[in-house]
Design a protein around this nucleic acid. Structure first.
Lengths: 367, 367
DNA sequence: CTGAAAGCGCTAACAA
DNA sequence: TTGTTAGCGCTTTCAG
């Protein structure tokens, strides 16, 4: 076992209360004793036991975050932003990775409960009501992502899918695309449904056409994008652009297209969503929708703190906006259905019809 | 505050000791009381307070891991493996991201100390002696990465850089490369030095030449690779292959080469290190050295547990091997110094001189 | 089979 | 300015 306050006190010839006072900088302890105690503290490398403090004070100063996939950059980047915020506020972060497994999600929540965390950000989408319920029952503030539901102690942050889809589709339309496909997220998740509906609405609004066989599902990961894009590309009649549900999916789609020797964006345009660091690094760099992670993390904090004050409050609904980032994975649509024949023409027209306003690479400091 | 055992006890008309017994499944409590207590437990969604348990039992059942960059896939993938191991062992993982800032590293270690973690994996390289020292002084088992030093309570895991460099350089040599450049890691870090020396040794051994201006430094990130590769490529006389210190650096190098319209591997070959998931996704997929993260995580566990038993033991030195994964970022060397002229010839010879034994993509389940 | 009591390391009245 | 005391929520002898 490590050193305890009592031992320090004994060595200094004072009571543990005095040591505690020195440790907390508080109170008016004589300079003399302070110095003496401080010296012993340093010598013995004393570090207070947080469990004891927590037990006594009843505050854990810890927030939890439950994410579905630690290897998805969107989440790690978000975790990073959130952690920075917490550290600045003298709080700790407990991270739990569920790997999309229900049991792991439940255990994670259970651990957070045991820790008596001050709040939980639940970004896993496969949680069932049980986890959420026990959190709420235990009066712990919760903030969810794209859950589309709030209640006392439960806030929610939704991404503006409608607005974002509107932006991408408008962008594609302005490039001349009228036949657009879609790769969505895991089937059965509420957020997947909202996203695909937003896509369909945008399609309708902008007079762009699609067809059932061009609407596919992925799993928010690269592999899912590869498979889904394969399905779209194996059809005799292909769309000239494919909108995907997130950057990892888009990267998979890119890969599938490359395997079939299609040029991007000359033969087919692809868009992503999230603007993870990687999206500017793949070839070609992805046109995507950026979500400000600082903003997102800030909303999580705000939601958790607000609810923390008063658990009877209804909880808040936040909406995080998206920004269209145009890079090289989208370009003018091939003129006609038989793309092959139009390459020459297209090259000639390229200079005038390319409204690509490229922005600086994100997250890459080249100098 | 949440429900405590005492309240449960009161409701069940028993003492808290009995409730504790039921909770721990232990002892011989009558079925009748067990059932009665269990019901109340369920009804009230009771979850024990881990701080109290920790305080009482003196065991935190928590390990800590300090990493320099949460957005570097190598680390997140490692964290994931490590966490899986821990969860299987009923332990928890406390993650700390230092973002390469010394103060953050120190604070992280301090938090781990407060938590009385059972062991710490210190993967940050910028830690100064102070952090390590307080860990050791507090009798907490520590395992470091590429620290090249062990002592009582302090184990170390080193990657077999010598062996790995030998493999890459041999591979390049067999492809006809005799002029090879190198992009290393952040200057001043011990591990960077070991890596570059390993490279130089391998170069010598295989009769490959390099030159001072081809030996550059990055920062283990994409941006550093871009800059370093830029320096190499801006020289009138270029190497035909560049070995880099990790995959992120290699990806940066790839990017820099692409910006200069060089074809890879036709014009220049590039190798990475780590075999992160992304390395098989970029274009072209990277030839790299794989480090088994399961193995690495297993070693961390083993080291921590072994030292945990007996802190007077000297600590162990582990070496993790590497496996060369050949993908498409390396190919036959251009025949002569003036690469441009040899393209045609090379194409003709390609069939016979290409010993690329491509392996299946890692981490991508296409079906 | 169950309860009483002590104590893990710390803080916060309240006294002195 | 400092010490005494009680107690946070739990486990664990030791009695009964």
């Amino acid at each position: 076992m490590s050193v305890s306050m009592r031992e320090i006190a004994k060595l200094a010839g004072v009571s543990s209360a005095t040591v505690s006072r020195v440790l907390n900088g508080s109170a008016l302890v004589s300079e003399e004793t302070t110095r003496r105690i401080q010296q012993i503290l340093d010598e013995l490398h004393f570090v207070p036991n947080s469990s004891a403090i927590h037990l006594k004070r009843g505050k854990s100063h810890t927030y939890g975050i439950v994410i579905p996939d630690l290897t998805n950059p969107f989440f790690t980047e978000l975790v990073k932003s959130f952690e920075e915020l917490l550290v600045a506020n003298n709080q700790e972060l407990l991270i739990a990775n569920t790997d999309l497994q229900l049991t792991r999600a439940q255990r994670s929540v259970h651990r957070m409960l045991m820790r008596r965390v001050d709040g939980v950000a639940l970004l896993a989408s496969e949680y069932e009501t049980a986890s959420l319920e026990s959190l709420v029952k235990n009066r712990i503030p919760v903030v969810t992502a794209d859950h589309y539901r709030i209640s006392p102690g439960l806030s929610d942050i939704i991404v503006d899918f409608a607005g974002g889809m509107d932006q991408v589709v408008a962008h594609l339309r302005s490039l001349g695309h009228t036949r657009v496909g879609y790769i969505g997220g895991t089937k059965g998740l509420a957020t997947s449904k909202v996203r695909s509906e937003s896509f369909l609405n945008a399609i309708r609004k902008h007079g762009v056409s699609t067809r059932k066989s061009w609407i596919t599902e992925g799993n928010y990961r690269v592999a899912g994008g590869v498979v889904a894009m394969g399905k779209i590309l194996s059809q005799p009649d292909r769309p000239s652009a494919v909108v995907t549900v997130n950057d990892l999916t888009a990267i998979g789609a890119l890969r599938a297209a490359r395997e079939r020797h299609l040029r991007i964006p000359e033969d087919i345009s692809i868009t992503g969503w999230d603007d993870i660091e990687m999206s500017d690094i793949v070839s070609p760099p992805l046109t995507t929708l950026r979500i400000s992670l600082r903003q997102y993390a800030g909303m999580m904090m705000e939601a958790l703190q607000a609810t923390g004050e008063d658990l009877t409050q209804p909880g808040r609904q936040f909406t995080v906006p998206t920004t269209l980032i145009v890079r090289q994975s989208t370009g003018p649509a091939p003129a006609a259905a038989k793309e092959q024949q139009t390459r020459e023409k297209k090259r000639a027209r390229k200079a005038e019809t390319t409204p690509l306003s490229t922005i600086l690479p994100a997250g890459i400091d080249v100098n």
